[in-house]
Design a protein around this nucleic acid. Structure first.
Lengths: 204, 204, 204, 204
DNA sequence: ACTGCCGGGACGCCCCGTTGGT
DNA sequence: ACCAACGGGGCGTCCCGGCAGT
C-alpha cells in the first residue's frame, strides 16, 4: 500500500504543479487540482494538510536542487564561472522540459502570497550562487569590486524573471536565447576580460 | 460634483494600490479596499465596473510614464545612456516613495492573473528602453553585438525584479543600492569601455 | 416644461414595459430600463418613487381598459356574448401590437412578487367579464347552471395564460388562433346551443 | 453515507420548494433556502451546482409524473376521457397536499426566468394530454373538429392557471371547485353530448 | 493505512434599488 | 432632472474537516 500511496502523492503533486504553473498560487483551486487527474479531495488532504503545504511541497521538490547540481557538476568544471554557466544551462533545460520546475519557480516568486511555510527557494539559490562567485573570486576570475552576494542576488532575480508571465516561453530555444542574452550582458561586468572572452565562446 | 467624484476616485485608487501592493491581485479583496478608506461598495462600483478594471486603472496610472519621463529628461541628457540612467533613477525614486507605483509594477508582473484589459506596462517600458538603446547605438555608445530590443527586454525584466517579493525594500537607499549593483554589472556588457567608465562615475 | 416631463415619463414607462415584458418583474433591473432609452436614474426616480410603483404604473396603464372597451363596444354589440367576443378580440390585438399591454398582463400575473400597490388587473377583468356574463344570462344566452363569477374567473385566467412564457407568440395570427381554440372549447359549455352556433360562425 | 446524502438532498429540495412556491424563482434566495432547514451552503452546493439546477431538480421531480399517472390509471379507466378526469383530479389533490408539486408547477410557469436547463414540464403534460385526447377521439368520445394537440395546449395552460398567484388556494375544496368549473365549461366543447352527460355526473 | 463522500462556513465579486447634494 | 454615492445581499465557490469504507 505504501507504493500506491507514494504514487498517488506524486500524481497529486504533478497535477498541482500543472495548475499552479498556469494560474499562480491564489488563482489555483484545489478543486481543479483533484479534477485534473481525478483524485478525490480526501486523497489530497491525506497527503497534504493544506493548500499552503501543497505549494510548499511543490517548491520543496526543487529545494537543494541547485546546490546538488553545483556539487555534481563541480567535478566537470573546475573553474567556478564555467560551473555557474553549466548550472544555469541545466536549470534552463529543466524550466523548458519540466512543469514542476516551472511551477516551483513561479511559486517561489509568489512566496509572499503562500505563507512562511514555503521554502524561500530563491534565497537558497542566491546562497549557492554567491558561493560559486566566491570561488570564482578566489580563482581570480571575478572583477575586483564585485560583491559576490549582491551579484548573486541580482543574478537569480534576473534569472527568475526570464520566465516572466506574459512572455510565454515558446520553445526550448526561446529560453536559451534569453539566458544567453543575459550572460552576454552580465559577464563583462562580472568577470575579468580574459575570462569573459573565453566564456563568451562557450555561449556561442 | 466633478471635483468630489475625482477625489473619491483617487481615494479608491490609492486604497486599491495599498492593498494590491501588499497582497497581489488575487489576494486582494475589494471588501478590504473599500474598508481601508471607508468608502462604500457602491462608490467603488460606480467608478470601476470590476476588480479587473480597478487593477487596470492602477496600472494605467503609470502607462506612458516612462515614455514621458524619457521625453522630459531628454533635454537634460543629450546622450542616451545618461538618459537611461536618469530615468532608471527616477523610477527607483518613485518605487520608493509612491505606493501606487509599486502597486502598478507589481500588478504589471501579475498581468496573466488579471486579464487582457490590463495594460502590458512592461512591454511599454521595453519599447521605450529599446528606443533609448537604439539612440545610444547611433551615438556610438553601445557595444557592437548588442541587440537593443533583446537588451531592453532583459533590462526591464531585471529592473522589475528589483522589488521582488520577499526582498522587501527596507529604505530608499536599499533599492538605490540594488539598482546600482544592476547597472555596474550591466554597463560593461552594454556600452563601450569609455562610456562605461564615465557612467560608472555617475553611479558613485 | 410640463410637456417635456410628460414625454419623459412616457419614454420611461415604455422602456420599463419593454424590459418587464421580457424579463419579468424581479428579473428587471432599473439600470437596464434607463439604459434602454438613455434616460438618467434621476429622471426615473423623479417620475416613479420606486420600482414597485413603476411596475404598478405599467399595470395601471391598462386598469379600467377592459371596462372602457366594454362600455365603448356595448353600443355595437347589443347581445352580451357578442360583446365578450369583441372585447376578447380587441385585447388579443392589443397583446399582439402593444408591448405595454403584454407587460401589463405579465406584471399582473406576477402581482405577488411586486407588492400590494400593484393593481389587481386580473381581478378587475374578472369583475367586468362577470358583469357581461350576467347580462348574457339575462338575455337568455347563458346555459343554466353556469355561475357568472366562477366562469369569469376561469375565462380570464385561461385568457391570461394564452400568452404563456415559453409559448412565445410568433405572430398576430398565432394568438388569434389560440383565442379561437379557447372559445370553441368554451362556448358550448357556456351558452345555449343556438347562441353557440351563431357565435361559432363569428369565429370562423 | 449514501443514505445520509439522499436525506440531505431531500431536505434541501423540500426547503427549496417551500421558498420557490412562496416567492417564485427570482424572488428566492438560496440563503433563505438553507436557513429554512439549517443546512449549510456547502451541502447545497454539493448537491446542486447552481440555483438554476436546483429549480430544475424541483421541476424534474414531477417530470413524467403525469405520464406515469396516466399509465397507472389507464387500467382503471378504459375510456380516455374518464382517465383524463381521473388524472386531473389526482393532480389537483397533489397540488393541494404537496408543496413540491405546487412549487414545480409554479417554476414550470416561470421557465423563461430560470433557463434552458429547466425541463418544460408543461410541454410534457401537453403531450400526454394530447395522447389521451387522441385515444378519446379514437373511442368516438371527442367532438369532430377538435384538434387534440390544440385542445391539450389550452387545457394544460388553463389548468396551470388554476393555482394562479393572487388567487391563493384556501383549501382542498377550493381547487377542486375551480377544476370542476373548468371541466364543466370545457367538456361540452370537447366531447360528444352523450359522453359529456356521463362525465358531468362524475363531476357531481 | 489510505481513500472518498459529504457537509460546513466564510467570503468574494457583482450589482441592485435607493438616497443626498446641486 | 442628475451625478455621485450607499449599503445590502445574491450567487458562486473555495478551503477545509468528519466519518465511513477498504
Amino acid at each position: 500500500m505504501q507504493a500506491r500511496a507514494g504514487r498517488t502523492r506524486r500524481i497529486i503533486l504533478k497535477a498541482a504543479a500543472d495548475i499552479f504553473e498556469a494560474r499562480g498560487y491564489m488563482g489555483t483551486s484545489l478543486q481543479e487540482v483533484v479534477a485534473l487527474q481525478d483524485v478525490s479531495k480526501g486523497a489530497l488532504y491525506f497527503h497534504f494538510p493544506s493548500k499552503e503545504q501543497l505549494a510548499a511541497a511543490v517548491i520543496r521538490e526543487h529545494q537543494g536542487l541547485l546546490a546538488e547540481l553545483a556539487a555534481e557538476l563541480r567535478g566537470h568544471h573546475p573553474r567556478a564561472m564555467w560551473l555557474l554557466l553549466a548550472v544555469s544551462r541545466r536549470i534552463s533545460e529543466l524550466l523548458c522540459e519540466d512543469v514542476m520546475t516551472r511551477a516551483g519557480v513561479r511559486l517561489a516568486c509568489e512566496r509572499d502570497q503562500i505563507g512562511d511555510s514555503a521554502p524561500s527557494l530563491l534565497d537558497d539559490w542566491s546562497v549557492t550562487v554567491a558561493e560559486i562567485l566566491r570561488d570564482a573570486r578566489d580563482q581570480g576570475d571575478l572583477l575586483p569590486g564585485v560583491d559576490p552576494q549582491d551579484a548573486a542576488d541580482f543574478i537569480i532575480t534576473a534569472f527568475a524573471g526570464l520566465q516572466r508571465r506574459g512572455y510565454p516561453i515558446r520553445s526550448k530555444g526561446d529560453l536559451h536565447r534569453r539566458a544567453t542574452t543575459m550572460w552576454r550582458l552580465l559577464l563583462p561586468g562580472l568577470t575579468t576580460p580574459a575570462c569573459t572572452a573565453e566564456l563568451m565562446k562557450e555561449l556561442g
